[in-house]
């Protein structure tokens, strides 16, 4: 697989994800947020939030609407920089100037809109912007055979059985498209994968499929930051849980420190939920 890897992935100077495959959760955090705060004028978007993700681990970021999940993604993916605190990559200040710098450092973000072209074939989308070429001079051309083959291989490695890499991305289901986007990020040398609500628009089965691919990426040794508002999606796959509420951290827990009912309870506002349940029962 590594000989197929395009130059761009190697230029990051970082070991490719495959080298750490199967390593599991070990060692120092890959990507870390240390007491980070972000203000937009007088609005406190995020205040004193810390979390981390290690290779082969899934860190789930949970929170209701307006909890600061989007701001957190923007900090980690280099769209904005924290006003206080730091983003650390391999224990050193990351200082991403822009999303491209984050990507080059191996931090890939899969957004909800996925940056894929619906009318284009899966393999064309997979390599869009980083097409492999062969030949030289005016005959330098898109290595179509390699693109098809690698796409099929990479999707298979993720357990995605696309019927036909020639079909337009628009004909894939939402879950399949998320999976292709994840496979693409993995192939192009991502070490940390930030997934922005990958399951939110999906049905139960589709969401299950995507969760399986998240687990697969984790098993390949990537650090995954999984942003969601659904604790039932987060808990089975997560190793660490950051709970956000109104821009503040409710806690950053390892899986051993918290149970699913507790996550749900904290997210919904703890005692507020108890009151609500009480109220509804009587009604």
């Amino acid at each position: 697989m590594s000989e197929d890897r395009p130059e761009r992935a190697d230029q990051t100077g970082k070991p490719p994800a495959a080298d750490t495959a199967g390593a599991g959760a070990t060692g120092a955090p890959l990507l870390e947020l240390a007491n980070a705060s972000k203000y937009y004028g007088s609005v406190i978007a995020l205040k004193d939030v810390s979390t981390s993700v290690r290779a082969g681990e899934v860190t789930c970021v949970l929170g209701d609407n307006g909890a600061g999940k989007s701001t957190l993604i923007k900090l980690l993916s280099g769209v904005v920089r924290p006003d206080e605190g730091e983003v650390l990559l391999d224990g050193r200040p990351a200082g991403f100037a822009n999303p491209r710098a984050a990507l080059d450092a191996g931090v890939a973000t899969v957004h909800q809109d996925l940056a894929m072209i619906p009318l284009m074939a899966v393999w064309r989308n997979f390599f869009l912007g980083s097409e492999p070429t062969k030949g030289w001079g005016p005959l330098r051309r898109f290595d179509v055979a390699a693109a098809r083959r690698i796409t099929r291989e990479q999707l298979a490695a993720m357990g995605i059985d696309i019927r036909d890499p020639d079909q337009p991305v628009g004909t894939l289901s939402g879950g399949e498209r998320q999976s292709v986007a994840i496979a693409r990020a993995v192939y192009f040398g991502a070490r940390v994968l930030i997934l922005d609500e990958p399951t939110s628009a999906l049905g139960v089965k589709q969401a299950g499929t995507v969760l399986r691919y998240i687990a697969r990426a984790r098993d390949q040794g990537l650090g995954v930051v999984f942003i969601t508002h659904n604790p039932h999606h987060a808990y089975p796959v997560g190793d660490r849980f950051l709970l956000l509420k109104r821009g503040r951290s409710l806690g950053d827990f390892a899986k051993s420190e918290i149970t699913l009912p507790e996550v749900t309870r904290l997210m919904a506002g703890g005692s507020e939920l108890d009151d609500l349940a009480h109220e509804l029962e009587r009604a």
């Binding site: 072209i117 009318l119 284009m120 869009l128 097409e131 070429t133 330098r140 051309r141 898109f142």
Partner: peptide, 17 residues
């Protein structure tokens, strides 16, 4: 069969993406 061809389809399909 060229990169440029892939780009042509892409900018017409969704220039921002």
């Amino acid at each position: 069969r060229t990169r440029v061809g892939n780009w042509i389809f892409a900018v017409g399909g969704d220039a921002r993406a």
